[in-house]
């Protein structure tokens, strides 16, 4: 028994030496795989780690905070160089983050913010949802010009933060342009089915869609549903009704190729790239990064070679 333990210990030590051959060991506690975007984030994080020669220890929390806390504690016990957390909820992180701080392990938050003193983590890498809405709105303002334009809006799940923020950003962008007006706004619950059903009612209520010049959807899935509804109403999406949405999932690029959608704002799944960059700078030169790193909200239109983007994104597990 004793020899076995000894053997195990030696094996463990060897494993440690092997892993220290890599530049860095980083633990990543992911929420789970509830959406295509989340799956893409996981695969991009793994790719980015591989690119930099980082040994990534991955833990899937299956939507449970307790699993995430367990994972972080085990990362601390393993003595990793840094920890990435995509936090499933905003509260309840103080204790475990203090443990990481005492062990001198920097923690970087991905994709979501938390309610904890910002001294407990190195930085947070997230997108700015208000900005996403604003980019979409700016595109529409520029595209429409001085022509009058009635907009219908498909909101996300009522009360969810992306729905509130993406609405706010869009409204800020079109404010001051009196020719642009949101005539109808209703929730499509971020799903294709509801997006299609609500779009059908928009079309009926606005003179068969003849009064509508543009459709703004808080995510691509609802836009995809709405595109089908517009087609079934005998109109041409992308021409008769402009379609702009957010997320940049692969299927919207197929709509670009078919000429049925006009613009999307990317919610990049690459949160780990910027995180690894600041981590590198911090570990090498002790350079404290800002407490919030905003990812780029890139605008895509059919002019951006949709086939190529589609092929790139398709493999990421969306």
């Amino acid at each position: 028994m004793r020899t076995f333990k000894l053997l195990a210990a030696t094996a463990f030590a060897t494993a440690l030496t092997v892993s220290s051959a890599f530049a860095l060991t980083v633990g990543f506690s992911q929420i789970g795989s509830e959406s295509g975007w989340r799956a893409a984030e996981t695969s991009v994080t793994k790719l980015e780690a591989q690119k930099r020669g980082i040994d990534l220890k991955f833990a899937d929390a299956q939507q449970k905070q307790e699993n995430q806390i367990k994972a972080v504690r085990s990362f601390i016990a393993q003595g990793v160089d840094a920890i990435l957390i995509a936090p499933v909820v905003a509260t309840g992180w103080d204790a475990v983050l203090k443990e990481a701080k005492e062990a001198n392990i920097p923690v970087i938050l991905l994709d979501r913010q938390i309610d904890a003193p910002d001294s407990l983590y190195l930085t947070a890498v997230t997108s700015d949802q208000v900005h996403e809405g604003k980019v979409a709105g700016d595109w529409l303002v520029k595209t429409v010009g001085d022509k009058p334009c009635n907009i219908v809006e498909l909101q996300g799940t009522t009360g969810s933060s992306p729905a509130i923020n993406r609405k706010k950003g869009f409204e800020e962008a079109i404010a001051g342009h009196d020719n642009l007006k949101i005539v109808r706004s209703q929730t499509g619950d971020f799903t294709r089915t509801k997006g299609k059903e609500v779009a059908e009612s928009f079309l009926k209520a606005e003179n068969g869609g003849k009064n509508i010049c543009a459709l703004y959807a808080h995510n691509d899935d609802m836009a995809v549903g709405a595109i089908q509804a517009i087609k079934e109403a005998g109109l041409t999406p992308g021409k008769d009704i402009l379609v702009v949405s957010i997320d940049a999932v692969p299927d919207i690029f197929q709509a670009f190729i078919a000429g049925e959608a006009n613009a999307t704002v990317e919610l990049t799944p690459n949160m780990a790239g910027p995180a690894f960059d600041v981590l590198d700078a911090y570990l090498k030169d002790k350079k404290e990064p800002a407490k919030w790193i905003q990812t780029e909200s890139k605008l895509f239109t059919p002019a951006d070679d949709p086939q190529k983007v589609y092929d790139e994104k398709k493999g990421l597990g969306y």
Binding site: E34, S35, D189, T191, R192, T193, K194, K196, D221, Q228
Partner: peptide, 14 residues
């Protein structure tokens, strides 16, 4: 019918 309607199977929401 629900899947055919949106040309896809949405396991989370169907």
């Amino acid at each position: 019918i629900a899947a055919a309607d949106i040309k896809g199977a949405d396991a989370n929401n169907a």
